[in-house]
C-alpha cells in the first residue's frame, strides 16, 4: 500500500492532492497570508492528500485514497515528543 521513498537530505513534504488544491499564485505585490478554507464537512468526502511517513523502520509515502475500503482514524497532534 504505502510506497517506500528514497529520502535524501531534503526534508520530504506532502500536501493535498486532487483538483481542490489551489494553484500557486504569483502576485508580485506583497501577498497576504494565504487562507486555505477548510473543506471539512461531515458526510462529505475527506480531502485526499499525500504525505511522507515513517512506518516500522521505513520512510514511505502515504496517500489517504489508498485506504478506500477501510475505516481510517486520521489523527493530528501538536508535535513529536509532546507529553499528553
Amino acid at each position: 500500500m504505502a510506497e517506500e521513498m528514497a529520502v535524501g537530505c531534503a526534508r520530504p513534504t506532502g500536501g493535498p492532492v486532487g483538483e481542490a488544491v489551489a494553484p500557486e499564485t504569483s502576485t508580485p505585490e506583497k501577498a497576504p497570508v494565504k487562507e486555505v478554507a477548510p473543506m471539512i464537512k461531515l458526510g462529505k468526502k475527506a480531502p485526499d492528500f499525500a504525505a511522507p511517513a515513517y512506518l516500522q523502520g521505513k520512510f514511505v509515502s502515504v496517500k489517504l485514497s489508498e485506504y478506500l475500503g477501510k475505516w481510517v482514524l486520521l489523527c493530528f497532534y501538536p508535535g513529536d515528543f509532546t507529553f499528553v
Binding site: 504505502a2 526534508r11 520530504p12 513534504t13 506532502g14 500536501g15 493535498p16 481542490a20 486555505v36 477548510p38 473543506m39 471539512i40 480531502p47 492528500f49 504525505a51 511522507p52 511517513a53 515513517y54 512506518l55 516500522q56 523502520g57 514511505v60 502515504v62 486520521l74 493530528f76
Partner: peptide, 22 residues
C-alpha cells in the same frame, strides 16, 4: 512493543492540516 504500527505522517507547513481545519 514493536513501535508505532501505523504510519506516522509528516505535514511540513501544515498544508494538509489547513485543509482539515486543524
Amino acid at each position: 512493543q514493536g513501535g508505532v504500527p501505523f504510519p506516522m505522517l509528516s505535514d511540513g507547513g501544515g498544508r494538509v492540516g489547513k485543509v482539515y481545519g486543524v
